[in-house]
Design a protein around this nucleic acid. Structure first.
Lengths: 119, 119
DNA sequence: CGGTTAAATAACCTTTCGGTTAAATACCGA
DNA sequence: TCGGTATTTAACCGAAAGGTTATTTAACCG
């Protein structure tokens, strides 16, 4: 399978879990230790540890070392692949929204025509 | 769990499978029957049928009816949620790329300084 | 060294996923 | 109404996902 495909598999499946997205959101605010990351969740530390490993394998985070702590740091550049993939489809939904816009404008035009004196 | 979160779960996990992304890519070119969609894959029809169901539950496609066929049609608007989610992180990787750009420019500046007469 | 703290690994369990084959359903056309 | 075509549903299977608790590893500190 093409390498870009593998990367997308890993990225999308990493992002499919709400816990992992919440972790990423937290890390977007800055580097943090595993315990701090785990605190908001009703979940054991090993569970968080596994989530971090999934994010790491997807290239979405990197790990550091600070005494006993292994702080995690976001690597948003891994999301560029998702953005690139989306590009193919962006024009499709934009076209769709344009048509919706046309429709709404048409509705409004008819409205004005029906009640030309309405405030 | 917040509804937007559920939707993102469904969308991302639907997109995590390469077969489903390939199906979407095909559907971006136009509405197609299940058999036509299945043709390129070394996979049984029921397998494709299941993938289509996943895509449908994620709101990424809709199904129609044309005689015996149940053509599938892409609904790219379901991807807007992904695009919106990405927005939070886009500034992070853009900042990162900016810094890379700065670094490259600095490299080039040093290069020019070292060999001011080079072609 | 010995105790404490932070995190990862191991072993295990249950549920979901992605596939299969076989049977059922829905529609068409003679 | 019967036979063919397109697709879904049912039942099953193995592997992967996501969680648990118990154990191990790694680093600090007195």
């Amino acid at each position: 399978m093409a390498p870009a495909t593998d990367r997308l598999n890993a990225t999308f499946s990493a992002l499919a879990d709400p816990t992992r997205r919440a972790i990423l959101a937290q890390l977007a605010l800055g580097e943090t230790s595993v315990s701090k990351l785990a605190a908001p969740f009703e979940m054991s530390m090993p569970a968080i540890s596994k989530h971090l490993k999934v994010l790491e394998r997807a290239g979405l985070i990197t790990r550091g070392r600070d005494a006993q702590m292994r702080p995690a740091k976001i690597d948003a550049s891994a999301l560029i692949g998702v953005d690139t993939w989306l590009t193919e489809y962006r024009k499709l939904w934009e076209a769709r929204l344009d048509r919706l816009d046309d429709y709404l404008q048409e509705l409004q035009a008819n409205e004005l025509q029906a009640k030309p004196k309405s405030k």
